[in-house]
C-alpha cells in the first residue's frame, strides 16, 4: 500500500485552510505591530526626556518585558483579567494587548537608541542654519531616526509574527489549531499526516518570515554605506 501522507494537504480545502489559519495570527501580529510602532515612538521620546521618575518607570517597564516570557504575559491577561475586571476578553484581544505591551517596549527602546545615536552636531548645525526647533525636529531628526529604525523595526515585525504562534495556547483558532483539526480528521486513513501538516506549517512560517530577514539585512547594509 502506497501511503503518501502529503495527500492530506490536498484533500478538500485543507491547504487553503492552513493559510487562513496563519492569516489569523498574521492579523494579530500586524495590528499589534501597528500599535507598537505608534506607542513605541511616544515611549522612545519620553525615555529621552529628563524626568527621572518617568525614566525609572520606563526602565521598570522595559525590564519587565525583557525578562517575562510573552507566554506568561498572555496567561496573565487571558486568565487574569477575566476574573478581576469582569472583562471577558477574547483570546484575540488578549493577544493584541500582550503583543502590543511587549512590542511597545521593544520599539520604544529602538526609538530611544536611534534618537541618541544622532550626533548632537547634527541638530546644532540645524540651529546654526537658523532653523526653528520644530523644523530641526521634522527635517533633521525624523528622517535620520527613521533611517536608523527601519532595519530593526522590520526585524521586530518578523519576531512579532513568530511570537504570535503562541496564541494557539490561549485557544485562538489559527494555523496550528487548523492543523490539528486536519490531522484529527485524517487520523485513520493518513496516519503520517502530523508529519506533513506540521512540516508544512514550519515552512509556511519560513516563507513569511524569510523575506523580512532578507529585507532587514539589506536595509542594514544600505544604512552602513
Amino acid at each position: 500500500m502506497q501511503d503518501l501522507g502529503i495527500q492530506v494537504l490536498f484533500r478538500g480545502t485543507n491547504f487553503l485552510r492552513l493559510w487562513q489559519g496563519l492569516w489569523v495570527s498574521l492579523q494579530i501580529a500586524a495590528i499589534s505591530m501597528l500599535f507598537s510602532v505608534i506607542l513605541g515612538i511616544f515611549l522612545g521620546m519620553i525615555m529621552t526626556g529628563k524626568n527621572r521618575i518617568v525614566r525609572l518607570l520606563c526602565r521598570i517597564y522595559l525590564e519587565t518585558v525583557r525578562i517575562m516570557p510573552q507566554l506568561v504575559l498572555l496567561f496573565l491577561v487571558y486568565f487574569g483579567t477575566a476574573k478581576h475586571f469582569g472583562l471577558d476578553l477574547s483570546s484575540e484581544v488578549s493577544a493584541v494587548i500582550v503583543f502590543t505591551f511587549w512590542g511597545t517596549a521593544e520599539m520604544g527602546d529602538l526609538v530611544r537608541s536611534a534618537f541618541l545615536s544622532i550626533p548632537s552636531h547634527q541638530y546644532e548645525s540645524g540651529y546654526a542654519l537658523g532653523l526653528q526647533k520644530w523644523q530641526v525636529f521634522f527635517h533633521i531628526m525624523i528622517p535620520q531616526t527613521v533611517r536608523r529604525l527601519l532595519p530593526s523595526s522590520v526585524n521586530l515585525l518578523s519576531r512579532m509574527i513568530k511570537t504570535t504562534s503562541l496564541v494557539v495556547l490561549i485557544g485562538v483558532v489559527e494555523v496550528v489549531k487548523v492543523g490539528k483539526q486536519i490531522i484529527d480528521a485524517a487520523r485513520y486513513d493518513v496516519p503520517t499526516s502530523a508529519l506533513w501538516v506540521y512540516g508544512t506549517i514550519f515552512f509556511m512560517y519560513f516563507l513569511i518570515c524569510f523575506p523580512f530577514s532578507i529585507a532587514s539585512s539589506y536595509l542594514e547594509k544600505r544604512l552602513k554605506d
Binding site: S158, K162, T163, S165, L166, V168, L169, V176, G179, I183, A194, L195, W196, V197, Y198, G199, I201, F202, Y205, F206, C209, F210, F212, S213
Partner: peptide, 14 residues
Amino acid sequence: NTPLLIQLFFLYFG
C-alpha cells in the same frame, strides 16, 4: 525564521 513552538510540534508530533 520559524517559531520554536512550530519546531517543537514537528519534533514531538511529526
